[in-house]
Every structure is written in C-alpha cells, then in structure tokens.
Design a protein around this nucleic acid. Structure first.
Lengths: 118, 118
DNA sequence: CCAATTGTTCAATAACTTTTGAACTAAGGA
DNA sequence: TCCTTAGTTCAAAAGTTATTGAACAATTGG
C-alpha cells in the first residue's frame, strides 16, 4: 500500500538533476512549491499532460527522491521532499524553484502565473 | 574561429539541468570548478572518456551555456560561465558544485579526490 | 452490488541520447 | 614541407526516455 521512495542518503545528484531537466517535471515541482506543502493528487496536474503521462513523470520524481507520494484511498497525495533535499543538497531545490518561478517557457498548471515560494 | 554560445538571457533552466544530469558532464563541471577559473583544454578530461566522446559532452555544456570555449591555436580553452549562470539562476551552480564536491559516485579526473571551490 | 473515480501497468512507437571508429580540418614545430 | 597535436564531424549502433491508448486494480458512494 505504500509506494517505494529512496532514503535521503540514497538520493543521487545526477539523477535529481536529470529528472528536473524536463519541462513537465519542472512545472510539477514549481506547482508543488507554489502550494507550500499542501499535498496534491495527480489529477491536479492534468493541464500538464495525459493521466498516463503524469503517472510516468510523477513516478520519476518519486523514484528520484524529489517528491513523496502517500496513498490515501484512491488518491496519491504528493508533496515535495523539501527538507530531505535540503539536507542532502543544501540550497539546490530553492535555487531551482526560484529560477523556475519566473520562467515563462515552462508549462503552467491552470494557465495563470504562479506565486512560487522558494 | 569562435564557437557558438548562448547569451546569458538565452540560457534555459531545463536545458541546464538536463545537461548537468549526466555523470560525465557533472564531473567535467566539478573539475572546472576545482581549477577556480583556470582554463582547461579538452585533453585534460581524457580520464572521463574518449576524445570523441568528450567533444560531444563539452559541446553539450557549451551549447547549454554552462561553459565557454575559446579557440587558442589548436586548443579550445574551457571555463565555467560562473558569473553568467549566477546572474541567470542565482545560487544554482554553487549548490550543484557543492553537492557534486563530495560525491564519490561521480567519475573523477586523475582518480584522486578534488578540492572543489563552490 | 454497481458505477464512478483515481491512478497504475503494459506494449507499442517515436524520439532522443550516448558511444564508437574512421575520416577530417587546422595550427604549430622541425 | 612533413609530421604531430588538438579537436571536430559523420554515420552507425546501442541504449534510454517520452508519449499514447487499452486494459487493469482499488476504493468510495449510491
């Protein structure tokens, strides 16, 4: 019932960077950051791709250790692993989120601009 | 005689992250950082791959705006675009270099550990 | 129980990336 | 001029990633 996640010390820098080097996944991370820790389910990202495709991208983010997914009923509640990433790679996630915050080239959920908290 | 480089404002976050999400290229960036701005030519990275393969990876880094290559005779002198990256994505390169600094999973030039300046 | 909702898995395909060797260009030194 | 050094380019092969639709599982509500 619980999904596999890497431990904090298993999170790999090149894998994290590679996973974030995709516009859809960067948009997911930006949107999660803008929600300041409030868990979101997959359906809230449907603007960014098909259900199947989001399942794929969200699994990549989870397996890389960027997000955590908790099973709640039929939902997977998704959060950013901010504290874990900051412990492992200090400052990295914040600078990525800040840089993504004002990037009009990234896809956006809802089509409107975001107030991103870095 | 000069090679193509993106302007600072043309540097793209997902492209930079994608390019850094490769162990060989991350090792190149780490080694450049450890040399604190001293330009290196391609041959100094031969521990990381074949000449052809390095030419490929160094072109990726240059085209992404991570490095600058200056033609000096038959050499391409390569430096990190620290100031440009810091202007465009404040803190990003420093946190990547710091995180890569103590990563034994990354390949290393010379086989010995590096004093990385972040 | 039945239907709707949420999300995964699978197989296929398309697209991209990495790596290789051989051939090449361009500059520099003997 | 000839040889060496430095690096690129090309085409092929191998591997990886992204995207899709159809089928599937699991939970919830009526």
């Amino acid at each position: 019932m619980t999904l596999p996640h890497p431990n904090t010390d298993q999170i790999s820098l090149p894998i994290v960077l590679g996973v974030l080097g995709d516009p859809t996944r960067l948009a997911i991370v930006r949107y999660l950051a803008s929600k300041q820790g409030v868990p979101l389910n997959c359906s809230q990202f449907l603007d960014l791709g098909s259900k199947t495709n989001l399942s794929y991208h969200l699994a990549k983010l989870r397996e890389a250790g960027v997000t955590r997914a908790e099973v709640v009923g039929t939902n997977r509640m998704i959060t950013l692993r901010r504290a874990d990433l900051d412990a492992r790679f200090p400052g990295l996630l914040d600078s990525v989120i800040a840089a993504a915050g004002d990037d009009p080239a990234l896809p956006a959920v809802g089509g409107h601009d975001l107030e991103v908290s870095a």
